[in-house]
Structures are given as structure tokens and as C-alpha cells.
Simulated scan of single mutants.
Amino acid sequence: MVRVAPQPTLASQEFWASGADGRLRIATCASCLARVHPPQPICPQCRARGLEMAEVSGRATVVAFTINEQVWSPAFPPPYVVAVVELADAPGVRLTTNIVGCDPSGVYIGMPVSVVFEQVEDVWLPLFEPASTADDPVTMPDPGDVGAGLRMPVSARKYEDAVAITGVGKSRVGRRLMVDPLSLTVDAALEAVSDAGLTLSEIDGLSTYPGGWMPGMSEGGASALEEALRIHPVWVNGASETPGQFGSVTAAMLAVASGLCRHVLCFRTVWESSYAAMVRSGQWPVAPGRASGMVEYLVPFGAYSPANWIACQASHYMHRYGATRDVLGWIAVVARQGAARNPDAV
């Protein structure tokens, strides 16, 4: 078994090919010399066009990491390290990678590392191993001023004051229910509409997240539920780029507040465990493919899950602010305290 290779795009193919000679190259602006990763068509600093790949030293510092103990793929027998490193001569440029050539327990934030390449088919993945010397270690930058980027609202009127959640419904909840996800969606939708004191003919909007993509993560999107319930909406939303599940609710609130529709049915059904069971049993064949889209720079390094991604951020937070694992423990404790007050909680 080998790693899942990334799918090079017209923008990233030079990056994935640059390690063929053992040298790391990063997109560089010819005008202001800013380093940019992933490669972009325009410099974020000076807005110049025409960035070109330029060689960097390959030295870096570990700024975040997680030791993964979960079996995600035969290509990655645990434990293995998913890390974020910052390049020594390209401040601000960070790569998701693996730390190799050492015991996972020996990895630490601030560790100096240097690039090595592993070829997978026609691409070269930049991995990092402990550096033989600690010359010029990267100093991690202080957190930026988030407030400086905030914009004032264009109006004092708040859209949330013009709308209300009028009904809530849910389906059965459990692991590996092996039930058609759209059937579960219909159960929850009918209950929500009834709870609101409405009929299906009064529903004139549908909103969901993430839409009809990625098996296990949705029921098929707005079109699937529209067909099942024979709803005739005048407004729909099925965007994967909204901020998570509640993005569909926020979008619906905006639609109602602006007068585009009156009653929006918001929904999402996750059936990931049933899908995984079907894949394992061979009922749902999954053709091997390359990593593309938002996971092009993640899955090739065994970072399959948001759990991997967020764990890296947590390790950086704990290092910077001196927090301990007890902080993470309180998240679970508070969540369970909340669930204990809800008789329908899992």
C-alpha cells in the first residue's frame, strides 16, 4: 500500500514536481519577493501577477503537530506524526507534512527540521526529518491583530431580530442505523414542519449544508428533499462553504429577513457510520483516487479528518499559552453537562 497521491492542478503541478531533484520550491512574487503557498495567481502582498516557483533552503521549524493513533489507511500504520512546519527562509509559509526519521514521541514544537522527499507516482511529497543542526530556527510569530480586519456593519438593523425558529424536528439518531439517509431527513422535516404549525405547502425555502456531495455527509441536498416531499421553494441554499451546519440556518435567516421567502426548512443528515460500514463490507465500492480540492495538501500526509487538523491547532495553542490537556477535557465535560439536560441527546 502507498500513500494517496495529490492531484496536481494547473496551479500546483510545479510545486508537486519540484522535489524531483531534492529541492523544495515555493511560489514567489517577482515584484516583492513574497513567498506564497499554496501557489496563487496573484501576490497577496503587492497584488502583482505572475508568481514563479523559486528554490528555498528546505529548513523549517515544527509549529504544530499531532501524533495520530487512529488507523485511517493501510499506508499509515500508527502512530505517525502530522505536523505543520514553517519554512526558515519563507516566514509565514507553512506546510502540512509528516515528521519522519525519528520516534513520534520525540517531536516537539520548535523542533528544527529539514526537507526530504518521497516519490508517489509522478509527484514528490515534501516530508521533514530532524535537522542535523539547529541553525537559524524559526521564531514563531506573535498572534496577529484579528480586530484590525473586522468591518463595521453597514446597518444597525440586525437580521436576526426579523426572524424566528418556529419548529424543530429530528430523526432517529444512532451509529450504523443502516437506514436510507433521505428517509431520516424526511422524518425530521415532517416533525419540524408539524412543530411549527405549518403544512408542506407553506414551505417556500430549503437550506442545507453541505449540499449533495460526499457520501456519508449529506442526504443528497436540497434537490433530493424537494423531490421527496414535492416542495416548491422559491429560494434554496445548499452551499458547502457556509460555516458548518448552522451556516444553513444563518443563510435562511438572511433570506427571510430580506423578504425572499417566508418559511425555510433547514436540514442536514449525517450517515457517515452507515456509509463506512457499507464500504468495509464491499456494498459501496470506492475507486482509488487522488486527493484533490481542499484535501490536496492534507490527505497525502495522512491528515484525513478535522480531528487531525484541529489537533495541530490545539498543540500550538497549548504551547503558546501554557495550557494543558485539562483544557480539552473541560470541553468534553461541559458538552456532557449540556447533553444531560436534554433527554434526546446521545
Rank of each mutant, 00 (worst) to 15 (best):
Q119V: 02
S305T: 14
M178F: 05
A252S: 14
E219L: 08
P306T: 07
W124M: 01
T166C: 15
V256Y: 05
P126D: 06
P343D: 03
V173R: 13
A48T: 10
G247T: 12
V154C: 07
N342D: 15
S171E: 04
Q40L: 15
L150K: 08
Y80R: 01
D161Q: 15
F65A: 06
A291M: 08
H319S: 09
E191T: 11
V113G: 07
L87K: 02
I231N: 00
E69D: 12
M1E: 00
G174F: 11
V249W: 13
R35K: 15
L254Y: 06
V334Y: 06
V56Y: 05
P104V: 13
E129W: 01
G289A: 13
Q13N: 14
C266P: 10
T139H: 08
D135V: 03
L95E: 02
G221V: 06
Y304E: 04
E191S: 15
V81K: 01
V71E: 11
P74E: 01
S105N: 13
R175N: 11
V249T: 08
Q313Y: 12
W309G: 02
N237G: 08
S171K: 08
R268V: 02
A188D: 03
A83R: 02
T166G: 14
R341K: 06
S240F: 11
C32K: 04
G149A: 10
C32I: 11
G174A: 13
V85R: 03
P143W: 00
R280T: 07
G221C: 12
V179H: 12
Y80P: 04
S57M: 09
T28W: 10
L198Q: 01
A192F: 12
A189F: 14
A335R: 14
V299W: 04
T61I: 06
I203G: 08
M178A: 15
G289Y: 05
D161C: 01
E118T: 11
S258V: 01
V256F: 03
F301N: 04
